[in-house]
Amino acid sequence: MIVVAGEALIDLVPSTATPPEADARLTPLVPRRGGGPYNTALALGRLGSPTAFCSRVSTDGYGGALLDALHAAGVDTAPVQRGPEPTTLAVAEVNEEGSAGYVFYVEGTADRLFELPAALPPGTTALSLGTCSLVLEPGATAYEALLRREAQRGVFTALDPNIRADLIADPDAYRARFASWLPHVNLLKLSVEDAAWLAGSPDVAAAARGWLAAGPAAVVVTHGADGLGVHTRDAAELRVPGVRIDVVDTIGAGDTVNAALLHRLAAHDALSGAAVANLTPDTWRDILTFAARASALTCSRAGAEPPFAAELA
Protein backbone atom coordinates (compact mmCIF):
# COMPACT_ATOMS: atom_id res chain seq x y z
CA MET A 1 0.00 0.00 0.00
CA ILE A 2 1.12 3.54 -0.81
CA VAL A 3 0.33 6.11 1.88
CA VAL A 4 0.11 9.77 0.90
CA ALA A 5 0.42 12.24 3.77
CA GLY A 6 -0.32 15.95 3.68
CA GLU A 7 -2.97 18.58 3.27
CA ALA A 8 -6.41 18.38 1.69
CA LEU A 9 -7.97 21.72 0.80
CA ILE A 10 -10.43 23.45 -1.48
CA ASP A 11 -9.19 25.29 -4.57
CA LEU A 12 -11.37 28.24 -5.57
CA VAL A 13 -10.90 28.25 -9.34
CA PRO A 14 -12.08 30.98 -11.75
CA SER A 15 -15.29 29.98 -13.48
CA THR A 16 -15.40 29.78 -17.25
CA ALA A 17 -19.01 30.98 -17.23
CA THR A 18 -19.67 34.72 -17.46
CA PRO A 19 -22.53 35.80 -15.18
CA PRO A 20 -24.91 38.68 -16.02
CA GLU A 21 -23.51 42.14 -15.24
CA ALA A 22 -20.05 40.66 -14.73
CA ASP A 23 -17.27 42.78 -13.27
CA ALA A 24 -13.86 41.75 -14.63
CA ARG A 25 -12.39 42.32 -11.18
CA LEU A 26 -14.90 39.95 -9.55
CA THR A 27 -14.46 36.69 -11.42
CA PRO A 28 -16.80 34.00 -10.03
CA LEU A 29 -14.97 31.19 -8.26
CA VAL A 30 -15.87 27.50 -8.30
CA PRO A 31 -14.83 25.24 -5.40
CA ARG A 32 -12.80 22.18 -6.40
CA ARG A 33 -11.08 19.56 -4.30
CA GLY A 34 -7.32 20.05 -4.04
CA GLY A 35 -4.06 20.06 -2.14
CA GLY A 36 -0.91 18.46 -3.54
CA PRO A 37 -0.93 15.31 -1.37
CA TYR A 38 -4.71 14.98 -1.70
CA ASN A 39 -4.48 15.13 -5.50
CA THR A 40 -1.68 12.56 -5.44
CA ALA A 41 -3.78 10.16 -3.34
CA LEU A 42 -6.81 10.66 -5.58
CA ALA A 43 -4.73 10.01 -8.71
CA LEU A 44 -3.20 6.86 -7.22
CA GLY A 45 -6.64 5.55 -6.35
CA ARG A 46 -7.95 6.23 -9.85
CA LEU A 47 -4.94 4.46 -11.35
CA GLY A 48 -5.73 1.40 -9.26
CA SER A 49 -2.88 1.45 -6.75
CA PRO A 50 -3.79 0.37 -3.19
CA THR A 51 -3.64 3.75 -1.47
CA ALA A 52 -4.33 5.35 1.90
CA PHE A 53 -4.53 9.05 2.79
CA CYS A 54 -3.02 10.34 6.05
CA SER A 55 -4.02 13.87 7.01
CA ARG A 56 -6.26 15.97 9.25
CA VAL A 57 -9.50 16.97 7.55
CA SER A 58 -12.25 19.30 8.73
CA THR A 59 -15.66 18.01 9.76
CA ASP A 60 -17.24 20.84 7.72
CA GLY A 61 -19.01 20.30 4.40
CA TYR A 62 -15.86 20.80 2.38
CA GLY A 63 -14.08 18.17 4.45
CA GLY A 64 -16.88 15.71 3.81
CA ALA A 65 -16.71 16.37 0.07
CA LEU A 66 -12.95 15.81 0.08
CA LEU A 67 -13.33 12.41 1.73
CA ASP A 68 -16.24 11.41 -0.53
CA ALA A 69 -14.05 11.72 -3.63
CA LEU A 70 -11.29 9.65 -2.04
CA HIS A 71 -13.80 6.93 -1.15
CA ALA A 72 -15.11 6.94 -4.72
CA ALA A 73 -11.54 6.38 -5.96
CA GLY A 74 -11.03 3.46 -3.57
CA VAL A 75 -8.62 5.32 -1.26
CA ASP A 76 -8.49 4.16 2.37
CA THR A 77 -9.18 7.13 4.67
CA ALA A 78 -8.83 5.28 7.97
CA PRO A 79 -5.61 7.22 8.81
CA VAL A 80 -7.39 10.58 8.41
CA GLN A 81 -7.77 12.63 11.59
CA ARG A 82 -10.84 14.90 11.83
CA GLY A 83 -11.31 18.29 13.48
CA PRO A 84 -13.94 21.06 13.74
CA GLU A 85 -11.68 23.77 12.34
CA PRO A 86 -12.44 25.03 8.81
CA THR A 87 -10.96 23.62 5.62
CA THR A 88 -7.99 25.46 4.09
CA LEU A 89 -8.87 27.52 1.00
CA ALA A 90 -6.58 28.26 -1.96
CA VAL A 91 -7.73 30.95 -4.39
CA ALA A 92 -6.31 30.15 -7.83
CA GLU A 93 -5.45 32.66 -10.53
CA VAL A 94 -5.04 31.00 -13.94
CA ASN A 95 -3.09 32.83 -16.67
CA GLU A 96 -3.56 32.59 -20.44
CA GLU A 97 -1.25 29.55 -20.65
CA GLY A 98 -3.27 27.71 -18.01
CA SER A 99 -0.65 28.01 -15.24
CA ALA A 100 -2.06 28.68 -11.79
CA GLY A 101 -0.88 30.85 -8.90
CA TYR A 102 -2.45 30.67 -5.46
CA VAL A 103 -3.38 32.77 -2.45
CA PHE A 104 -3.85 30.58 0.62
CA TYR A 105 -6.19 31.04 3.59
CA VAL A 106 -4.62 28.81 6.23
CA GLU A 107 -4.97 30.43 9.64
CA GLY A 108 -6.72 28.17 12.14
CA THR A 109 -7.54 25.48 9.58
CA ALA A 110 -7.85 21.77 10.31
CA ASP A 111 -4.95 20.36 8.29
CA ARG A 112 -2.37 22.47 10.16
CA LEU A 113 -3.11 20.54 13.36
CA PHE A 114 -2.07 17.12 12.08
CA GLU A 115 -0.45 14.93 14.75
CA LEU A 116 2.04 12.09 14.25
CA PRO A 117 0.06 8.82 14.04
CA ALA A 118 1.13 5.87 16.13
CA ALA A 119 1.51 3.76 12.99
CA LEU A 120 0.65 3.67 9.29
CA PRO A 121 -1.67 0.96 7.89
CA PRO A 122 -0.32 -2.59 7.82
CA GLY A 123 1.34 -3.40 4.51
CA THR A 124 2.56 0.15 3.85
CA THR A 125 5.35 -0.04 1.28
CA ALA A 126 5.71 3.63 0.30
CA LEU A 127 5.09 7.07 1.79
CA SER A 128 4.64 10.24 -0.28
CA LEU A 129 4.77 13.75 1.22
CA GLY A 130 5.02 17.37 0.14
CA THR A 131 3.62 20.87 -0.43
CA CYS A 132 2.14 23.10 2.31
CA SER A 133 2.05 20.33 4.89
CA LEU A 134 5.84 20.51 5.25
CA VAL A 135 5.77 24.29 5.75
CA LEU A 136 2.88 25.15 8.06
CA GLU A 137 3.39 24.46 11.76
CA PRO A 138 2.64 22.69 14.00
CA GLY A 139 1.69 20.03 11.45
CA ALA A 140 4.95 20.36 9.49
CA THR A 141 6.96 19.01 12.41
CA ALA A 142 4.63 16.00 12.68
CA TYR A 143 4.89 15.23 8.95
CA GLU A 144 8.68 15.56 9.14
CA ALA A 145 8.74 13.12 12.07
CA LEU A 146 6.60 10.72 10.03
CA LEU A 147 9.06 10.89 7.11
CA ARG A 148 12.04 10.15 9.33
CA ARG A 149 10.32 7.34 11.24
CA GLU A 150 9.03 5.52 8.19
CA ALA A 151 12.34 5.87 6.32
CA GLN A 152 14.08 4.30 9.30
CA ARG A 153 11.59 1.42 9.11
CA GLY A 154 12.60 0.80 5.49
CA VAL A 155 9.48 2.27 3.85
CA PHE A 156 10.12 3.76 0.39
CA THR A 157 9.79 7.56 0.64
CA ALA A 158 8.93 10.09 -2.05
CA LEU A 159 9.05 13.87 -1.64
CA ASP A 160 7.63 16.69 -3.79
CA PRO A 161 8.43 20.04 -2.11
CA ASN A 162 5.98 21.86 -4.45
CA ILE A 163 7.18 25.26 -3.28
CA ARG A 164 4.60 27.88 -2.26
CA ALA A 165 6.98 30.75 -1.67
CA ASP A 166 4.33 33.06 -0.18
CA LEU A 167 3.95 30.62 2.72
CA ILE A 168 7.68 30.39 3.46
CA ALA A 169 8.65 33.18 5.87
CA ASP A 170 12.38 32.32 5.94
CA PRO A 171 13.59 30.83 2.62
CA ASP A 172 17.10 30.06 3.89
CA ALA A 173 15.75 28.20 6.91
CA TYR A 174 13.40 26.22 4.67
CA ARG A 175 16.24 25.31 2.29
CA ALA A 176 18.26 24.04 5.24
CA ARG A 177 15.29 22.02 6.45
CA PHE A 178 14.79 20.60 2.98
CA ALA A 179 18.43 19.50 2.92
CA SER A 180 17.93 17.73 6.27
CA TRP A 181 15.13 15.59 4.74
CA LEU A 182 17.19 14.27 1.83
CA PRO A 183 18.98 11.45 3.69
CA HIS A 184 15.50 10.05 4.41
CA VAL A 185 14.16 10.35 0.82
CA ASN A 186 14.39 7.69 -1.91
CA LEU A 187 12.70 9.62 -4.74
CA LEU A 188 12.77 13.40 -5.05
CA LYS A 189 10.42 14.92 -7.61
CA LEU A 190 10.10 18.64 -8.27
CA SER A 191 9.41 21.16 -11.01
CA VAL A 192 12.29 22.93 -12.72
CA GLU A 193 11.08 26.19 -11.14
CA ASP A 194 11.08 24.67 -7.65
CA ALA A 195 14.49 23.14 -8.25
CA ALA A 196 15.93 26.53 -9.18
CA TRP A 197 14.29 28.16 -6.14
CA LEU A 198 15.67 25.54 -3.76
CA ALA A 199 19.12 25.63 -5.33
CA GLY A 200 19.25 29.41 -5.58
CA SER A 201 20.57 28.84 -9.09
CA PRO A 202 19.23 28.01 -12.58
CA ASP A 203 21.78 25.17 -12.84
CA VAL A 204 19.32 22.42 -11.98
CA ALA A 205 21.61 19.61 -13.13
CA ALA A 206 24.28 20.67 -10.64
CA ALA A 207 21.68 20.95 -7.91
CA ALA A 208 20.36 17.47 -8.71
CA ARG A 209 23.88 16.02 -8.40
CA GLY A 210 24.17 17.55 -4.95
CA TRP A 211 20.78 16.25 -3.86
CA LEU A 212 21.59 12.75 -5.14
CA ALA A 213 24.78 12.75 -3.10
CA ALA A 214 22.72 13.55 0.00
CA GLY A 215 20.44 10.53 -0.23
CA PRO A 216 17.80 10.11 -2.98
CA ALA A 217 18.30 7.34 -5.52
CA ALA A 218 16.71 9.49 -8.26
CA VAL A 219 15.63 13.08 -8.83
CA VAL A 220 12.77 13.62 -11.30
CA VAL A 221 12.38 17.15 -12.67
CA THR A 222 9.30 18.30 -14.59
CA HIS A 223 9.69 20.89 -17.35
CA GLY A 224 6.06 21.79 -18.04
CA ALA A 225 5.05 21.31 -21.66
CA ASP A 226 8.63 20.25 -22.46
CA GLY A 227 8.24 16.98 -20.57
CA LEU A 228 10.22 15.58 -17.67
CA GLY A 229 13.51 13.93 -16.91
CA VAL A 230 15.30 11.87 -14.30
CA HIS A 231 18.74 12.43 -12.80
CA THR A 232 20.51 9.40 -11.33
CA ARG A 233 23.90 8.92 -9.74
CA ASP A 234 25.26 6.93 -12.68
CA ALA A 235 24.04 8.87 -15.71
CA ALA A 236 23.19 12.25 -17.16
CA GLU A 237 19.56 13.36 -17.24
CA LEU A 238 17.26 11.12 -19.28
CA ARG A 239 14.40 13.15 -20.77
CA VAL A 240 11.06 12.33 -22.37
CA PRO A 241 8.92 14.90 -24.21
CA GLY A 242 5.61 16.23 -23.01
CA VAL A 243 2.34 15.15 -24.58
CA ARG A 244 0.78 17.89 -26.71
CA ILE A 245 -2.76 18.62 -25.63
CA ASP A 246 -5.21 21.51 -25.43
CA VAL A 247 -4.51 22.84 -21.93
CA VAL A 248 -7.45 23.99 -19.81
CA ASP A 249 -5.27 24.55 -16.75
CA THR A 250 -2.27 22.93 -15.07
CA ILE A 251 -3.85 22.48 -11.63
CA GLY A 252 -2.88 19.07 -10.26
CA ALA A 253 -0.47 18.26 -13.11
CA GLY A 254 2.56 17.83 -10.88
CA ASP A 255 0.56 15.85 -8.34
CA THR A 256 -0.54 13.50 -11.10
CA VAL A 257 3.13 13.01 -12.01
CA ASN A 258 3.82 12.02 -8.38
CA ALA A 259 1.08 9.41 -8.50
CA ALA A 260 2.02 8.09 -11.94
CA LEU A 261 5.67 7.69 -10.92
CA LEU A 262 4.75 5.70 -7.80
CA HIS A 263 2.15 3.64 -9.65
CA ARG A 264 4.55 2.72 -12.44
CA LEU A 265 7.44 2.07 -10.06
CA ALA A 266 5.18 -0.37 -8.21
CA ALA A 267 4.32 -2.05 -11.53
CA HIS A 268 8.07 -2.60 -12.05
CA ASP A 269 8.44 -3.88 -8.46
CA ALA A 270 10.78 -0.96 -7.81
CA LEU A 271 9.49 0.64 -4.60
CA SER A 272 12.86 0.56 -2.86
CA GLY A 273 15.90 2.77 -3.00
CA ALA A 274 18.06 -0.08 -4.28
CA ALA A 275 15.59 -0.99 -7.02
CA VAL A 276 15.28 2.62 -8.19
CA ALA A 277 19.06 2.95 -8.29
CA ASN A 278 19.27 -0.07 -10.61
CA LEU A 279 16.52 0.83 -13.10
CA THR A 280 17.61 0.72 -16.73
CA PRO A 281 17.20 3.68 -19.10
CA ASP A 282 14.43 1.81 -20.95
CA THR A 283 12.51 1.27 -17.73
CA TRP A 284 12.90 4.92 -16.76
CA ARG A 285 11.68 5.91 -20.23
CA ASP A 286 8.57 3.79 -19.70
CA ILE A 287 7.92 5.31 -16.25
CA LEU A 288 8.44 8.91 -17.36
CA THR A 289 6.35 8.49 -20.53
CA PHE A 290 3.49 7.09 -18.46
CA ALA A 291 3.74 10.08 -16.11
CA ALA A 292 3.76 12.53 -19.03
CA ARG A 293 0.62 10.99 -20.50
CA ALA A 294 -1.20 11.02 -17.15
CA SER A 295 -0.24 14.63 -16.46
CA ALA A 296 -1.40 15.75 -19.91
CA LEU A 297 -4.85 14.29 -19.31
CA THR A 298 -5.12 16.22 -16.04
CA CYS A 299 -4.22 19.43 -17.90
CA SER A 300 -6.99 18.78 -20.42
CA ARG A 301 -9.75 19.49 -17.87
CA ALA A 302 -10.49 22.14 -15.27
CA GLY A 303 -9.13 21.72 -11.77
CA ALA A 304 -7.27 18.74 -10.36
CA GLU A 305 -9.06 15.86 -12.10
CA PRO A 306 -6.47 13.12 -12.61
CA PRO A 307 -7.14 10.30 -15.07
CA PHE A 308 -8.50 6.83 -14.44
CA ALA A 309 -6.53 3.73 -15.36
CA ALA A 310 -8.81 3.02 -18.35
CA GLU A 311 -7.88 6.38 -19.90
CA LEU A 312 -4.22 5.34 -19.96
CA ALA A 313 -4.71 1.76 -21.11
Results as ranks from 00 to 15, higher is better:
R293D: 04
C299I: 01
G303R: 03
R301P: 03
C299F: 09
G273K: 12
P307F: 13
A310M: 09
A309Y: 11
T283R: 15
G303P: 02
L279C: 05
L288K: 13
A310E: 15
T280W: 10
D286V: 03
L279F: 03
W284M: 11
E311M: 10
P306N: 10
A277D: 11
A294W: 01
W284F: 14
I287C: 08
A302K: 02
V276W: 02
S295L: 06
C299Q: 08
A292S: 14
A304D: 03
A296V: 00
N278G: 14
T280C: 06
R301Y: 07
V276H: 02
T280E: 13
E305W: 03
R293M: 03
A292F: 04
A296L: 04
W284H: 10
F308V: 03
D286Y: 00
G273P: 07
L297I: 02
T280D: 10
T289S: 15
A277F: 01
D286M: 02
E311Q: 15
L288C: 12
N278L: 12
I287V: 15
R301I: 05
I287S: 11
F290M: 11
F308K: 05
T298A: 06
I287M: 09
A274F: 00
A292D: 05
P306F: 06
D286A: 14
S300I: 06
R301N: 07
E311F: 05
L297E: 03
N278A: 15
I287D: 09
E311A: 14
W284C: 10
R285F: 09
D282V: 00
E305I: 02
R285S: 15
I287E: 09
A302Y: 01
R285G: 15
T298R: 08
A275M: 09
A292W: 05
A292V: 03
S300T: 04
R285D: 12
